[in-house]
């Protein structure tokens, strides 16, 4: 048994020129599972007497919807952002929890002489996290432009009133870029570190010792899914708010 840590997901095979990695397959499988569950709920949707599964889904949805409303403060905005936030949450949650299904590490694939793990935590693939982060960040920019107008939005970053405000404007650009890095690397780093920690522990002491780390991983799996979705909502809320100064400016203009 050797310790095998790789930052990048492993390529299993190629379809045409598309390299198929283990996390790509994983994300497909998880998507299919979620879609199947949703279709099942849709098909057996009962109006007044929900079954157990429908109850669970309803509880999850209404609970997270109320939470989103409490963060963003308005039903109208919440209705628009909720599907994305909920999808992010469910997808990350299921992907993170799927890594706790035992026996995955044993399944390997022999490619060109070296063994490659078929299952890998989906969120330990920076590509997947990066895609979701970009969706969030681009959405935030679109919301900000829609609220402030294209020129008002650019004016936030390029401000020539004084050297200080110019500098602060440039720092805002850095802040927006840092958003991408921190949002994506938070999720990726946590899950990847959890995976590495788990495999190192498993490598050092296979019995009982990894258990506390598994519990910790379970906690961070849920928390990170929650944090990613909530931060998306918070960013959108911040972007969609018109600051008081601007209102004063608009009134004086």
């Amino acid at each position: 048994m050797e310790l095998n840590i790789s930052l990048a997901p492993d390529i299993l095979f190629y379809i045409g020129s598309l390299p198929v990695t283990n996390t790509l397959i994983g994300s497909f499988v998880i998507s299919v599972v979620i879609i199947a569950a949703m279709l099942l709920v849709k098909k057996r949707l009962k109006k007044d007497t929900p079954g157990k599964f429908q109850n669970l889904v309803e509880f999850l949805m209404s609970g997270s919807y109320d939470f989103v409303v409490s963060i963003i403060g308005s039903e109208k905005k919440a209705k628009k952002i909720f599907p994305l936030a909920f999808t992010l949450f469910i997808f990350i949650l299921v992907a993170n929890l799927a890594t706790f299904i035992p026996g995955q590490a044993a399944v390997t694939f022999n490619r060109e002489g070296e063994s490659v793990a078929i299952f890998r935590a989906v969120m330990a693939d920076y590509g997947m996290v990066f895609v979701m982060t970009m969706i969030t960040v681009i959405l935030v920019q679109i919301v900000a432009i829609a609220v402030h107008g294209p020129f008002g939005y650019m004016g936030k970053f390029f401000n020539f009133k004084s050297p200080l405000s110019f500098f602060l404007g440039l720092m805002d650009i850095v802040g927006e870029l840092a958003k991408i890095v921190s949002l994506s690397f938070r999720l990726f780093g946590n899950i990847f570190a959890g995976e590495v920690l788990g495999s190192v522990m498993l490598f050092l002491a296979p019995f009982f010792v990894p258990l506390p780390f598994l519990f910790l991983g379970l906690l961070s799996a849920v928390v990170q899914a929650f944090v990613f979705a909530v931060l998306t909502v918070v960013f959108v809320k911040l972007a969609s708010e018109i600051e008081e100064e601007e209102l004063v400016e608009e009134a004086s203009m």
Binding site: I34, M61, T87, I90
Partner: peptide
């Protein structure tokens, strides 16, 4: 995934 959840779930 987003579309399906929006269409059939949400």
């Amino acid at each position: 995934l987003l579309f399906v959840i929006y269409k059939f779930g949400y």
